[in-house]
Simulated assay, not measured.
Amino acid sequence: MELYRFDQACGKKISQFNSDFIMSRIIQLNGTAHIGCMYLEADGVVGYHQAVTPQILLIITGEGKVRGENNEYIKVQAGDAVFWQKGEWHETITSHGLTAMVIESEELSPSLFMTTK
């Protein structure tokens, strides 16, 4: 399991085309990808299972805990990203709820764009 950041502090100011915003790069893909949004209510759980493909979990709101194969829970919150390799056992839990984007693809290399936590 690898932990990354994608919060505003990690981003770059974009001013092209009269723009004024911060962009935190996450990933670039050329192949097939599955992208979804997960909504975990209070006491929500994504049960302990093996990753079918490399995947990254981007915490958008709320907070929770994740664990990998070492069974140690690590707190995550908005702006954190968790990366699991294919076949890696993992789980996500939350007491108060969280919303997260999940990207699954054989081509994930978050270390090319994001800062480690």
Rank of each mutant, 00 (worst) to 15 (best):
F17D: 09
D7L: 00
Q16M: 12
T94A: 03
M101P: 06
S15L: 14
G97E: 10
Q50S: 08
S19E: 08
T53L: 14
T116S: 13
K12M: 13
L3T: 10
Y4V: 07
S105N: 05
A100T: 04
L58I: 08
L3P: 03
R67V: 05
A51F: 02
T99N: 13
G44P: 11
G36Y: 10
S24N: 10
L112W: 05
D20G: 07
L112P: 00
I35G: 14
F83H: 09
T94S: 10
R25P: 14
F113C: 10
V45H: 05
G31I: 07
Y48S: 02
G68Y: 06
G47K: 06
S105K: 02
R5D: 06
L108C: 04
I60D: 11
I14D: 08
F83L: 08
Q16T: 14
E91H: 10
E41M: 13
T92M: 07
I74Q: 12
M1S: 14
I103E: 06
L29D: 01
Y4G: 07
G11E: 06
E107I: 05
S15H: 11
A42H: 05
K75I: 05
G97K: 09
R67E: 11
G87K: 05
F6Y: 14
G79I: 05
A100L: 11
K12I: 15
T92G: 11
L108F: 03
K65G: 03
S95I: 14
Y73F: 15
D7C: 10
I59A: 01
L40A: 10
H49F: 03
L57R: 00
Q50P: 01
V66C: 08
G79Q: 06
N30K: 14
F6I: 13
I103W: 01
G11F: 05
E91N: 09
H34Y: 07
H49V: 09
A100I: 01
D7H: 11
I35L: 14
G64I: 08
F17T: 11
G87S: 06
G68T: 02
L40M: 12
M23R: 13
T99S: 10
Q85S: 13
R5W: 08
W84M: 08
S19C: 12
L40D: 10
E69C: 12
V45M: 08
Q77F: 00
T32F: 15
S109V: 13
G64P: 08
N70C: 03
W84I: 12
G97L: 06
K75E: 12
Q85Y: 04
V76Y: 04
F6A: 11
N71E: 12
S105T: 04
M1C: 04
G64W: 07
S19M: 15
S95C: 08
F6R: 07
